[in-house]
Computed example of a mutant assay.
Amino acid sequence: MARILTILARGYLFHDKNGTVISGDSHDRIDYARRALCAWCSVPEDGKRAPGKEWQLQTDFSELHTEFPELVDADGIGWFLRHVLRTADFMLTHPENVRSTSLKYAEVIQSKFAAAWRSKVLQYQIPIFAPQTKGAWTLIRYYLANRQDDCEWVVLPVANFDAYFGDTSFSKKYLPKIPVEIMERSNAFGISRYRITEEYLP
């Protein structure tokens, strides 16, 4: 999915809707590309969230329909959700044209995919180090729990953190992006270890 979103973003950064390369600084179109991604990912709200909270992230980008009618409809159903649901509808309508192993997932997709995708769209919008995220300060909490009185370094169990987050994105994508102003890493003596800058500690 990360590759798909990257391809979409590049398209709206560097090309117009006819595919013509746009001249000028692409950095000036970052907000435009982000709106395109939001439109493509759009999922109508489920009605359970309390409205009017400024800090809340949204998943329904129906307001972008005028700007990106090809990516989201007036009801807030984005291109991706519409594509997946239409695929499930086709499988259920034409079971003779679908493998039985695929067909058994069609009803599940039809009933549960929107909710799962809504959760994912919220997740995509949260910065990895945002203070309100559940796992944003995991490394700092782990550091505080495991630091010894006589040493400011703590062993960094990268494999364990990957397991905690469910894939290798943490070690391969996010860990290298942590600024040195927050965390210093060392591989002395063949051991991966780290320490947190004092200003980020309680």
Score class of each variant (00 low, 15 high):
60 D>T: 06
60 D>W: 14
60 D>G: 02
61 F>N: 00
61 F>E: 02
62 S>V: 02
62 S>R: 02
63 E>D: 14
63 E>P: 05
64 L>T: 04
64 L>A: 02
65 H>F: 02
65 H>D: 08
66 T>I: 12
66 T>V: 09
66 T>W: 06
66 T>L: 13
66 T>G: 09
67 E>G: 01
67 E>C: 03
68 F>K: 01
68 F>Q: 00
69 P>N: 00
69 P>Q: 09
69 P>I: 03
69 P>T: 02
70 E>Q: 06
70 E>C: 01
71 L>R: 02
72 V>Y: 00
72 V>W: 01
72 V>E: 06
72 V>Q: 04
73 D>N: 11
74 A>F: 14
75 D>N: 07
76 G>N: 00
76 G>P: 03
76 G>V: 03
76 G>F: 03
77 I>C: 09
77 I>N: 12
77 I>P: 01
78 G>P: 00
78 G>E: 05
78 G>R: 03
79 W>F: 15
80 F>I: 14
80 F>L: 08
81 L>E: 00
81 L>I: 05
81 L>T: 04
83 H>D: 15
83 H>V: 08
83 H>C: 10
83 H>G: 11
84 V>S: 01
85 L>C: 05
85 L>M: 15
86 R>W: 11
86 R>T: 12
87 T>R: 09
87 T>S: 08
88 A>F: 00
88 A>G: 06
88 A>W: 02
89 D>H: 05
89 D>N: 08
89 D>R: 13
89 D>W: 03
90 F>Q: 11
90 F>E: 12
90 F>M: 15
90 F>A: 07
90 F>C: 08
90 F>K: 13
91 M>T: 06
92 L>V: 06
92 L>T: 01
92 L>K: 08
94 H>L: 10
94 H>D: 08
94 H>M: 10
96 E>Y: 07
96 E>V: 12
96 E>R: 10
97 N>G: 11
97 N>I: 08
99 R>C: 09
100 S>Q: 15
100 S>H: 14
100 S>W: 11
101 T>L: 10
101 T>M: 09
102 S>Q: 11
102 S>T: 11
103 L>F: 04
103 L>N: 03
103 L>M: 04
104 K>I: 13
104 K>D: 12
105 Y>L: 15
105 Y>M: 13
106 A>K: 09
106 A>M: 10
106 A>T: 03
106 A>W: 06
108 V>A: 13
108 V>K: 11
108 V>P: 02
109 I>A: 14
110 Q>M: 03
111 S>W: 01
111 S>N: 14
112 K>E: 12
112 K>A: 07
112 K>C: 11
112 K>N: 13
113 F>T: 06
113 F>Q: 05
114 A>R: 07
115 A>L: 12
115 A>T: 10
